[in-house]
Design a binder for these strands. Sequence first.
DNA 1: CAGCATCCTTTTTGATACTG
DNA 2: CAGTATCAAAAAGGATGCTG
Lengths: 154, 154
Amino acid sequence: MTETLERGQKTTVESSNPACQPGVEVEMLVREMIGCVADKWTMLILEELTEHGTVRFTRLGELVGGISQKMLTKTLRQLESNGLVKRTVYPVVPPRVDYQLTELGLSLSEAFCGVWEWAEKYHGQVSQARRAFQPLAVPSATLDSEETGGSQTY
Amino acid sequence: MTETLERGQKTTVESSNPACQPGVEVEMLVREMIGCVADKWTMLILEELTEHGTVRFTRLGELVGGISQKMLTKTLRQLESNGLVKRTVYPVVPPRVDYQLTELGLSLSEAFCGVWEWAEKYHGQVSQARRAFQPLAVPSATLDSEETGGSQTY
DNA sequence: CAGCATCCTTTTTGATACTG
DNA sequence: CAGTATCAAAAAGGATGCTG
């Protein structure tokens, strides 16, 4: 694998550099970022911030739904440290902290838009595929791993 | 948990659906899918399959890099159960199993394309933001910048 | 209200060892 | 080669108590 990542089809090819191959280094960085960003809560928070603009801590938790303060804080810190979210603290008596996307965060949110649209468009097909999927019935007593995703529909 | 989610207000295919109340149900399904798909290994595997088309098990593991057989198997099973990946077993002596994206999987891969492009385009800014982010806990003696005097909870 | 610290439970992941 | 099974380590996540 000499030619590293040619990422699908570069629609907007701004730097097709045949001679120089920043591939490997960029690849690492990109993967690291994917690892940080390809997270359930991250996507949901990003989404809510996109929809509501500036939101307070607790409110954000409510919007996301089902997230603990711990995870909310953690994910927000990560987003903040990556420059995707801006945190504003108001020195008022009942503490008030607003969160909003930065330009960078907004751009990521837009990038994720395609995934959301995909999910909205194809969730039916996925659900259908899940029901049609028969996890190869094997020997006796194979009940340890439910690695077939969340085989909740069973 | 609350279902007070009113997120779906963008490109909705729901709006053209008279006999169905979109929002809540779709929201749940979409979130569930995001939860299944917004995963590090999932994205990477999807990527490699997009790049290389049909790939064998071990080869795929090499391409992804840094993934254990366990996770590779698990993630592939999940992808398969969701109808995103097609698994082909050849009854030959040295077992051969090919993996390739389905139409659905390809569509998801394309949806993720935006995220990859984003990562390629902005990883520099993210790296920069990370270095500039100095919250409270200082790991080691880096540069001793001035006391920001902000709300330091130490 | 925001959020950190702590304890504890659940999940995830990695590292073998073992089959067909 | 392509897994499965199992154990141990690690991380994620939840609940609670405590600050300013």
